[in-house]
Design a protein around this nucleic acid. Structure first.
Length: 162
DNA sequence: GCCAACGTTGGC
DNA sequence: GCCAACGTTGGC
């Protein structure tokens, strides 16, 4: 895929549930992004997020809150089978295998930032201050990111982009 | 179909 | 721990 076609996203995770270090320790540094139970985010997972898309990995609800690194989509939207599993914490009776309600994607770790970018840095930098992540009331666990924001985040992290 | 009550998210 | 901003639920 040509790099110009890829989209960019920010995925939020509470690091005490699943951190970028957990991703680094996972088999193949890969995981399924499970448990999304919000329709707007579901639609993104099902329809918009494609293989090869770039991901900023954000740690929420910790001090400090940071963009901890990057990942990439390796498998696009497919049914979240945990919703079918009666014993699983993400079980949802309204989601059926032939008409799944919930979706997930698989991601693989790309880079752990040596200098994670804090939320305060994002707010203070003109290149990132407009990110959807920072907008008041935005509680979505996945938000789109522009190429310019992606570049600005890498600059703040002290990472050179090719 | 409206909307009040309730539950959850997540920054502060 | 607080609470604003949402999303969902359920009575009518």
């Amino acid at each position: 895929m040509a790099s110009g076609e890829r989209k960019l996203w920010l995925f939020k995770s509470e690091p005490f549930v699943f951190s970028i270090d957990d991703l680094a320790a996972a088999k193949g540094k890969r995981t399924c992004w499970e448990g999304v139970r919000n329709y707007q985010v579901r639609n993104m997972l099902r329809d918009e997020i494609k293989k090869g898309d770039g991901i900023l990995f954000y740690h929420s609800r910790v001090d400090p809150m940071v963009i901890a690194g990057t990942a990439e989509v390796v498998k696009e939207g497919y049914p979240d089978h945990h919703a079918f599993d009666l014993d699983h914490k993400y079980f949802d009776a309204k989601s059926k295998p032939d008409t799944p309600t919930w979706y997930m994607v698989d991601i693989v770790l790309k880079q752990v930032f040596k200098n994670p970018v804090t939320r305060d840095q994002l707010k203070g930098d003109s290149g990132t201050a407009e990110m959807k992540l920072l907008s008041k009331g935005s509680r979505l666990s996945i938000t789109p990111v522009t190429e310019a924001e992606w570049n600005a985040v890498h600059q703040l992290a002290g990472v050179k982009l090719k």
